[in-house]
């Protein structure tokens, strides 16, 4: 799985951090999401899909082989 995050779309809602805290964080200055792991391990895949699904800004894309 490859995770793509578009920071220009992000609205700092923090939904991704709540859904997949091992994969996403928020930067201190403005809360914009940052990607911690671009190729997360299999046990995190469901959380990442959930993060992409609930992102209010549709800023997360997931590429699956």
């Amino acid at each position: 799985m490859k995770v793509l995050l578009d920071q220009t779309k992000c609205v700092s809602s923090g939904q991704c951090v709540l859904a997949a805290p091992a994969v996403f964080d928020q930067r201190d200055e403005d809360g914009i999401a940052v990607l911690l792991v671009a190729n997360p391990d299999a046990e995190l895949h469901e959380e990442v899909r959930e993060a992409a699904r609930i992102c209010p800004a549709l800023a997360i894309a997931v590429q699956e082989p």
Partner: peptide, 12 residues
Amino acid sequence: QRRLLTSDFMVK
């Protein structure tokens, strides 16, 4: 304007 406040309401 919203961006002036986003850091204040971050999850952490």
